[in-house]
């Protein structure tokens, strides 16, 4: 898994590539906690390069989104397609996460 950041008008765009599973979930969790600690509570997580997500990945996704929300922030997800989208839909996470087709769309919705 590879995580990259960029800032776009006060919103942190977090691009996650590769697999988000039990092995890499801790990395994602640490990264998002660090962002929160920096006060960057407005995030767009770009999943367009993400190929797989497991239940452990969903758990850290949920935990991070909850923390951000508790801090008054907002997390939106962009580019969720294919496999990842199938899992998110199957588990009903699409009902509690804000999903967008593209990063721009997500930024526009912020």
């Amino acid at each position: 898994m590879n995580i990259q950041f960029r800032d776009s008008a006060g919103v942190t765009v977090v691009a996650v590539a590769g697999k988000l599973d039990a092995l890499t979930a801790a990395d994602y969790e640490t990264t998002m906690k660090a962002l929160l600690a920096d006060g960057k509570t407005r995030c767009v997580v770009d999943f367009s390069e993400l190929t797989y997500i497991s239940s452990a990945g969903l758990r850290v996704l949920l935990a991070a989104a909850k923390s951000t929300k508790a801090a008054g922030g907002e997390t939106r997800f962009a580019g969720v397609t294919g496999n990842v989208l199938a899992v998110i839909e199957m588990t009903g996470f699409n009902s509690i996460l804000s999903l967008h087709d593209s990063v721009d769309a997500a930024l526009g919705a912020m």
Partner: peptide, 9 residues
């Protein structure tokens, strides 16, 4: 219809 997992919210 798929529904949300148990415990999330």
């Amino acid at each position: 219809k798929p529904q949300l997992v148990v415990g999330a919210m």
